[in-house]
């Protein structure tokens, strides 16, 4: 297993209040949300979350009736300066590694860039990034 962080994906129907139920369950349990992104496709969407306690969050959400999937994603540290995203994207593109999706995560003086490659490419993606001096995180 390559260096990665765990991401939770939650299936949501496009209905009023469902997003609030997810954040409500986590808030009530005192689980901090580090990053949140909602992607929608017509009648449904997927809520992607990076949280402090992944396994406990998964159990609580499943108990709350949600379908939840845990998947590894790559988290890299980025400086708040222009061109930093471009550098990471270009490094991977040059190696022919496809990025399925990406979003950011805030915390501390530096930003965190979360990205998902094809599962089989993950190890190589991490190697490519690290060999160019990019800091890949194993926790956020």
């Amino acid at each position: 297993m390559s260096k990665s962080v765990k991401q939770l994906s939650v299936f949501l129907e496009n209905k009023v209040g469902r997003l609030g139920e997810v954040t409500g369950i986590l808030a009530k349990a005192g689980i901090r949300i580090r990053s949140i992104e909602l992607v929608e496709a017509g009648d449904f969407g997927i809520l992607r979350l990076i949280v402090a306690e992944t396994e406990r969050a998964k159990e609580l959400l499943e108990a709350g009736g949600f379908s939840v999937k845990v998947s590894p994603v790559i988290a890299v540290e980025i400086a708040h300066e222009s061109g930093c995203f471009n550098r990471i994207v270009s490094l991977l593109a040059a190696e022919g590694i496809n990025i399925q999706y990406a979003y950011t995560c805030h915390g501390g003086p530096l930003g965190i860039f979360i990205l998902k490659t094809d599962r089989v490419e993950m190890l190589r993606a991490v190697e490519v990034l690290e060999s160019d001096g990019v800091k890949v995180l194993d926790a956020v």
Partner: peptide, 14 residues
């Protein structure tokens, strides 16, 4: 959508 078919990818669900 059960756990068996859940994924992190909207495209796959579609």
């Amino acid at each position: 959508v059960s756990e068996e078919i859940m994924t992190d990818n909207v495209g796959e669900l579609e």
